[in-house]
């Protein structure tokens, strides 16, 4: 991250203090799956609402006052600025509290943090998105971004899986992308299910079957750690180099700005130097720490 990047972002600090959240209001809540909700929100401050900018792949720290703070990627696209979105799986104290909120509730939000996807690098390339479960959240920001700038990218392939049909997130997106003739999308579930007529199989296996070409392509992978771990070797077999594989890592984070230490792997901080990494950057640490 360069000094300019940081000074750019300083515009969004509350009172110049990086740790202070801005007040935001939840406008709409979508039940994605039994354990996942998407929150649409906007900043309370008129000026910030207009000025706030971010890149696909960046995240923010969200506060439920009195409960705590947790990081989630901004799952909406910067090209669609009517509101901001983030998706939350119910797993702990803060996420449980978030799931109890209704429209109109006030939360805190500070950010954006992290590097985001390398748009310059991706332009003119074939994009292969590989997602699992709620891991589609950061990918969908980029997918919509690419769709809204369709002429800047070549083919768009999406391979997305979940445990069961009920666990597929963003079904409205999946439908929209399915209808979009410029996109190839394959959806899969882990195990056979009566209500599912589509493809069955774990994501890495389906990637192997679909076998997207590595030529002028970049694979963008996000999902549960185990899925990421098994997908990289498959992509490598298909000819993707470590530089052609991108992922966005999830680690326990608190501060979001490379200070508190939790998300440190090697000399990198997932929150500060990531969360978007090429496999080349992290492969030394992947085997043992991720």
């Amino acid at each position: 991250m360069t000094a300019t990047d940081i000074s750019q972002r300083k515009r969004f600090f509350a009172n110049g203090n990086i740790y202070l959240p801005h007040i935001a209001v939840i406008e709409k809540i979508i039940d994605e799956t039994p354990g996942v909700k998407t929150f649409h929100f906007n900043f309370k401050d008129e000026k910030l609402r207009k000025e706030f900018g971010f890149q696909s792949g960046q995240f923010a720290e969200y506060s439920i006052f009195g409960v705590g703070e947790a990081p989630f990627c901004i799952s909406s696209s910067p090209t669609r600025r009517d509101h901001l979105e983030f998706a939350v799986q119910q797993v702990g104290k803060v996420t449980n509290a978030l799931h109890r909120l209704g429209p109109g509730a006030e939360i805190g939000c500070r950010g954006p943090y992290g590097n985001g996807f390398p748009l310059d690098f991706l332009q003119g390339k074939n994009l292969v998105f590989v997602g699992g479960g709620i891991g589609l959240a950061p990918l969908r920001s980029l997918i919509w971004n690419a769709i809204d700038n369709r002429d800047k990218y070549e083919n768009i392939d999406i391979i997305y899986g979940a445990r069961s049909p009920h666990d597929l997130c963003f079904k409205y997106d999946l439908d929209a992308w399915d209808k979009d003739k410029t996109i190839n999308i394959v959806t899969t579930i882990d195990k056979e299910d009566k209500s599912w007529a589509g493809r069955v199989g774990f994501v890495p296996k389906v990637v192997e079957e679909v076998a997207p070409s590595a030529s002028n392509a970049v694979a963008i992978v996000c999902g549960p750690p185990i899925m990421i771990r098994f997908t990289f070797p498959v992509l490598a077999k298909l000819g993707f180099t470590p530089e052609q594989m991108i992922t966005t890592l999830e680690k326990r984070m608190k501060c979001g700005i490379g200070k508190c230490g939790r998300c440190n792997i090697g000399n990198l901080y997932v929150c500060r130097d990531g969360p978007v990494f090429t496999y080349a950057q992290i492969k030394n640490f992947v085997s043992s720490e991720y």
Binding site: F65, G66, G68, E69, K254, C255, K259, C260, G261
Partner: peptide
Amino acid sequence: YCFDINDE
């Protein structure tokens, strides 16, 4: 300098 953040 590792730290934690908590609300009360």
